[in-house]
């Protein structure tokens, strides 16, 4: 039996009121890729033109300098000049990426941090090592042997989720793979949460608040035409959620 009782992640009962809380935070930043080694007059002229055209776009947005095409700028003096010029234009430069061999002390004095190269929206060039990270993760299925209560959230991050019992309204099931519910499904079920379109949901009776596969969802309002009783199979076909009573 695995994970007999799912637990919510924090335990509000245990701590006296804490003075701080550590939480993960993602933010979207603009990456400014410098494509010339010679960041002089023409470079700033082009930049000013861009800033003039779309001032809203840049106002208040954090900016990361991408030096992948201009390794020469990693030189402390030239980097300082560039950063100062950008900041004078009210660009909020806070980090540098793809700047190999730059002295951390230099970054520190400029108030910059080295940002690991992330995924840019328009990918400029495939930088080899980033690809090796995505090794397939081992599948870990999860079986819950108790009813899932309102307010509980059960996540099978890397596999299938099977519930032997009912899923109350207000409960949430999330799985990377399939979801099986051996009992009435009255809560929410989201299968294929990482985008797996071949994920399926099975339940013994469908009264769900929401079902979703790979991000495509239907709520109870649009589930209306589906008979609630009987075993139901939910799957994705031609980018549409299909529901079939199978028994």
């Amino acid at each position: 039996m695995s994970d007999r009782y799912a637990r919510t992640r924090h335990d509000p009962a245990s701590a006296t009121a804490a003075a701080f809380q550590v939480r993960g935070r993602f933010l979207t930043a603009l990456a400014l890729r410098v494509d010339t080694e010679n960041a002089g007059g023409p470079f700033y002229a082009q930049l000013d033109e861009q800033l003039h055209k779309t001032p809203q776009f840049f106002s208040g947005a954090p900016v990361v300098l991408d030096l992948v095409n201009a390794p020469g700028i990693s030189d402390p003096a030239r980097l300082r000049e560039l950063v100062e010029n950008l900041r004078r234009r009210e660009l909020l430069v806070f980090g540098v990426q793809n700047a190999a061999g730059i002295d951390p002390e230099v970054l520190k004095t400029l108030g910059l941090i080295a940002v690991p190269p992330g995924r840019d929206a328009p990918l400029p060039r495939d930088t080899g090592p980033a690809r090796a990270v995505a090794a397939p993760r081992p599948i870990q299925n999860k079986v819950i042997h108790s009813p899932v209560r309102s307010g509980q959230m059960i996540v099978a991050e890397q596999g299938d989720l099977t519930i032997i019992g009912s899923v109350a309204s207000g409960a949430e099931l999330i799985a990377a793979g399939n979801i099986h519910v051996y009992g009435p499904l009255r809560g929410r079920a989201m299968a294929g949460c990482h985008g797996d379109e071949s994920a399926h949901i099975f339940c013994q009776s469908l009264n769900a608040e929401l079902v979703a596969i790979a991000g495509l969802y239907q709520t109870s309002e649009t589930l209306g035409e589906v008979p609630g009783q009987g075993c139901t199979h939910i799957y994705l076909e031609d980018e549409k959620l299909c529901m079939k009573v199978i028994a």
């Binding site: 009782y5 209560r149 309102s150 307010g151």
Partner: peptide
């Protein structure tokens, strides 16, 4: 009934016996 269901969830997850 829904609130009771929520409480049953807490009883099985956030109590000494559950921990």
């Amino acid at each position: 009934v829904r609130d009771s269901d929520r409480v049953l969830g807490l009883l099985s997850s956030q109590t000494k016996r559950a921990e």
